[in-house]
Design a binder for these strands. Structure first.
Length: 251
DNA sequence: ATGGCTACGATCCGTAGA
């Protein structure tokens, strides 16, 4: 089973790229973030024609998450109560799939930063509950945290900044402490592997990025995980998302 | 010096992202 996550930064703009990528990547399940679409605008028919069912929770302009899958999506849940549409979960082929779009946090010390830390505490509590019911659980998404310095192109320049600050990293580790593993770090990886690059200053060409999109696997899934990779190809397209997909294979 | 892109929904600039 091939699981994937991709912050598409507007599904309306990126739908053609998503359909191409689904056909090429072999993804069985794809978690999408920043769809920026109300549910009535979700391109259900286009995805269905491509062979994917979908569960989605969206809003206009901001946020919005979706899970698309070749198999049936069962027991769909929109996660913990919230105005911002950032969490959706479904069971696919016996795997509990949780799609998250964690808050950005804007700047350390801002109201949005405090919201981000509180949000992670809520997510942790909610995931703990989900894990008690689902041994085979995967959390995929844009966590907006680079867990370690090796996930940052220039750790010195980023030191203490939002996405790498110690409280954010502690919040991320708090999720791992529930018994989840960062699939990407289960395997040897190339140095300077990132999943996001700023649109400005030719950041992608300079590989000035962050690894802020992750796939977390519960122990039974981590033991069966055979690969985890970042697919940089979509970031090279015309009009790309600033994020690129991350994939994990689970036997 | 603190911007630089991109998407969006509002107007022809502001907000947000990371």
């Amino acid at each position: 089973m091939r699981l994937a996550t991709w912050n598409v930064n507007s599904l309306k703009v990126r739908l053609p790229q998503l359909l191409d990528w689904l056909a090429q990547s072999g993804a069985d399940v794809a978690c999408l973030q920043e769809t920026k679409l109300e549910d009535g605008q979700f391109p259900r028919a286009e995805l269905q024609a491509a062979g994917y069912a979908a569960a989605f929770s969206g809003q206009k302009t901001y946020n919005g998450v979706a899970i698309v899958a070749r198999s049936t999506l069962e027991d769909v849940s929109i996660g913990f109560p919230q105005e911002q549409k950032r969490v959706i979960a479904a069971t696919v082929d016996g795997v509990r799939v949780v799609c998250v779009y964690c808050p950005n946090g804007q700047a350390v010390g801002s109201d949005k930063y405090e919201y981000k830390l509180q949000w992670f505490a809520q997510l942790r509590a909610w995931l703990k509950e989900e894990l008690s019911r689902h041994a085979r659980l995967a959390v995929l998404g844009d966590f907006n945290v680079a867990p370690e310095d090796r996930d940052v192109h220039d750790p010195k320049a980023w030191e203490g900044q939002v996405h790498v600050s110690e409280p954010e990293r502690a919040a991320f580790r708090g999720l791992l402490e529930l018994g989840l593993g960062d699939a990407f770090r289960l395997f040897p990886q190339p140095e300077k592997s990132f999943s996001w690059w700023d649109y400005r200053r030719m950041a992608f060409r300079r590989n000035a990025g962050l690894r802020i999109d992750q796939i977390l696997l519960s122990e039974p899934l981590a033991q069966r995980c055979t690969a985890c990779t970042i697919d940089k190809a979509p970031r090279r397209h015309e009009r790309p998302s600033d994020h690129t997909p991350v994939l994990a294979d689970v036997a």
